Simulated assay, not measured.
Amino acid sequence: MMEWLQQSEGIWQYIVLFLLAAAPLLDVFIVVPLGVGLGLNPIAVGIIGFAGNFLMVVILGLFFKQFSKWREKRRAKKGITGPTKRETRARRLWERYGLPGLAILAPGLVGTDLAAVLALTFGSSRRWVIMWLAISLAIWTIALTIGSIYGFRYMEII
């Protein structure tokens, strides 16, 4: 998909960027700097990165029960019995800071999709999970967009 982004032109670059943002484990931490680095409009990149990531959070929130059943079957097939390192890290965040802390810290540490699944697994309300992750994604997207703009400008100077 990264090659598609570089090879496509115009509106297609933004569509590919949206698909990358919606892909599991590809958060705004990757998509926003990539889009800005390719010279795309930073505001559009931020909005599209947020929208793609947020779409996955909403889908996971709405279909959590079905997703959870599918995930358990998949883990059983692979022989995974205990929590992964990312899940353990998320659990520690949850125990220390609760849903707001997990939502704010998760995009950088475990990813928004895994944070949504874990928060729902820990018993949080679907509405609160979606709301807190939306706030977190907005903050991170703005910070990453601004950081990418100035970071790439700084690199051009050197």
Results as ranks from 00 to 15, higher is better:
3 E>M: 07
4 W>M: 14
5 L>S: 06
5 L>V: 12
5 L>Q: 03
6 Q>P: 12
6 Q>W: 12
7 Q>T: 13
8 S>F: 08
13 Q>W: 04
13 Q>T: 00
13 Q>C: 07
16 V>K: 03
18 F>N: 01
18 F>L: 10
18 F>A: 03
19 L>Y: 03
19 L>G: 02
20 L>M: 11
21 A>L: 08
25 L>R: 06
26 L>A: 01
28 V>C: 02
32 V>E: 10
32 V>A: 07
33 P>I: 07
33 P>M: 07
33 P>N: 09
34 L>A: 06
34 L>D: 03
35 G>E: 05
35 G>Q: 06
36 V>P: 08
36 V>W: 08
40 L>G: 08
42 P>G: 00
43 I>R: 03
45 V>T: 04
46 G>W: 07
47 I>N: 09
50 F>Y: 14
51 A>F: 10
51 A>G: 11
51 A>N: 09
53 N>E: 10
58 V>Y: 04
64 F>K: 07
67 F>A: 05
69 K>R: 12
69 K>P: 02
70 W>G: 03
70 W>P: 04
71 R>E: 11
71 R>C: 05
78 K>R: 13
80 I>S: 15
81 T>N: 15
85 K>W: 15
86 R>K: 15
86 R>L: 15
89 R>F: 13
92 R>C: 07
94 W>E: 10
97 Y>F: 14
99 L>I: 12
102 L>C: 02
102 L>M: 15
102 L>V: 14
103 A>M: 07
103 A>C: 01
105 L>K: 01
105 L>W: 07
105 L>F: 03
110 V>P: 04
111 G>D: 06
114 L>E: 09
115 A>T: 08
116 A>E: 03
117 V>E: 00
118 L>V: 05
118 L>C: 08
119 A>W: 06
120 L>R: 02
121 T>I: 04
124 S>P: 13
124 S>E: 13
125 S>E: 12
127 R>D: 11
128 W>F: 15
128 W>Q: 15
130 I>K: 06
131 M>E: 11
132 W>Y: 08
132 W>S: 08
133 L>K: 00
134 A>K: 05
135 I>W: 09
139 I>P: 00
140 W>Q: 00
142 I>E: 03
144 L>P: 00
147 G>H: 04
149 I>Q: 00
154 Y>D: 04
155 M>C: 05
155 M>A: 15
157 I>H: 13
157 I>F: 14
